[in-house]
Nucleic acid binder design. Sequence first.
DNA 1: TTCTATTGTTGAACACGTTCAAATCAGATG
DNA 2: CATCTGATTTGAACGTGTTCAACAATAGAA
Lengths: 223, 223
Amino acid sequence: MPAAKITKSDQTANKILEAALDLFREQGFDTATMRAIAEKAQVATGAAYYYYPSKEAIVMDFYRRSCEEMQPKIEAALEGAKALETRLRALIQVKLEHFAPNRGILRALLRNGADPKHPLSPFSSETRAIRDIDTAWFRRILIDCGVRIPRDLEPALPGVLWFLQMGVIFFWVIDESPHQVRTAKLLERAASSAVVLIRLSGLPLMRPVRRSALEIVQLVRGA
Amino acid sequence: MPAAKITKSDQTANKILEAALDLFREQGFDTATMRAIAEKAQVATGAAYYYYPSKEAIVMDFYRRSCEEMQPKIEAALEGAKALETRLRALIQVKLEHFAPNRGILRALLRNGADPKHPLSPFSSETRAIRDIDTAWFRRILIDCGVRIPRDLEPALPGVLWFLQMGVIFFWVIDESPHQVRTAKLLERAASSAVVLIRLSGLPLMRPVRRSALEIVQLVRGA
DNA sequence: TTCTATTGTTGAACACGTTCAAATCAGATG
DNA sequence: CATCTGATTTGAACGTGTTCAACAATAGAA
C-alpha cells in the first residue's frame, strides 16, 4: 500500500467539509447555504460541487467518516464487556457520545430515514456499506455473551439489534429532555428488554411466536 | 347548522387541489412544479399560495380529506367483524385500499415521517387531530373483541396498535412487489402476531416483560 | 522548455419554492 | 349610481440548490 499522500485536492475537500460542518453546527443544515459554505471555505460556489455532488453528500461524508472514527472507540468500549446487555449498552453508547457534538447534523441526516430511496437514509443502498459494518458488531457481541441464542434466530438477530439501535438513535436526535436523559433511560430499558426477550424466545412455549417474528423480519428485510 | 354553501373561493381551492393531485399522480410530487400546478388549475402561481401556504400543505390537505372519507368505510368494514385479528386486518386494509390509487402521493407524505418536527410527519403536532381519530378506532376494536386485555396495558395499547399500523403503511408505500403482495403477507402475520402477543402478555410469567414494554412505550410517547 | 491532457476553479445562469406589492374584482354602503 | 372595503388574483422578484461552459493551473511527455 503506497503512503496515502495528502494532495492539494484533499485539502480543498477538507476545507469545504469543515466549513460546511461548522456552519451546520452554528446555524443548522437548512439555514447554511452552499454559497456561505463556499465563501467560508474560500472557494467559488461551483468548487463545492466539484468535490461534493450535493449538499447532502457533505453530511453523508460526515456520517461515513464518523463511522470510521468510531471503530476503535467501539473496540475499546467492548473491551472487557462480557454480558450481552452490557455490550449492547456500550456499543450504542459509543455512538451517542461520538455524535453528541453533532446531534443537529445527525438529525438532518436521519430525517429522511423513512425513505429508503433517499441516499441519506440509513436504509438506503448508498449507506449499505456502513450498515454492514455496523451489523457485524452486533453479530460479534452475540458470540460468547452468556445468552443462548436459538439457532433459527441467529442469522436474523444482528439485523434486528441494529434496527433496535437505530430506534434509540432516532429517539436521541429528537430527544429534547435535558442532556437527553430520556434516551439514557430508554437505552437502559431497551437493552434489558432485548436480552430478556432473547432469553424467553428460547422457551418451548415461545416457539410459534419466534417463528412468526422471524417470518416478519424476513418479509421486511426482503423489501 | 347552516347549509354549507360552495363559494367561488372553495371552487378555486378545489381546482388547485385537483390539478396538484393529478400532476402528483402523473409525474410524482417532486417533479410536479407549483408553476405547472397553477397553470393546470388556470390560475397564477401566487394564487396557489393564497389557498395553500406551501406545496406540502396541498398533500397535507389530501391526507386530511382522505381520512375524513375513510371514516364511513372503516365503519362498514368493521361491521360484523368480531375477532380482534379480523378487526385489525379489516381496519388497516381499508386504509391501504383507500390510498391505493395514490400510493405515490402518500409516499411523498410519509418520507418525512422520521422527523416529528416536520408538519407532514404522522407524528407531528400538525397531524395530531388525525392521529387521535385514528387511535380511537384502535381503542374501539379492542372492546368486546374476545381477547382479555391486561388492565395496565389498556391505555397504551391503542397507541401501540396505531404505531403497528403505521409500520404496515410505511412498508406498503415502499413495497415494490407486484400488487404489494408482500404487504398483504406482512399484514396477515403482523395482525396474527399482535393478537398472540397480547394474549401471552396476560400470562403471569410475562408480567415483568409487560411492565418493561410499558415503560418503554411511555418513554417514547412522552418525547 | 514547450506542448498537451488532466485536474481544478470560476461565477453566471437555471429551475425551483416562495413572497409580495400592486392590480382587480365583488359586494356592501352612501 | 359612485365609492369604499375586503377578498382575490397577478406576475415579477427573491433566495435557494445545482449546472455548466469557460478559464486557469498543474503535471507529465516531447
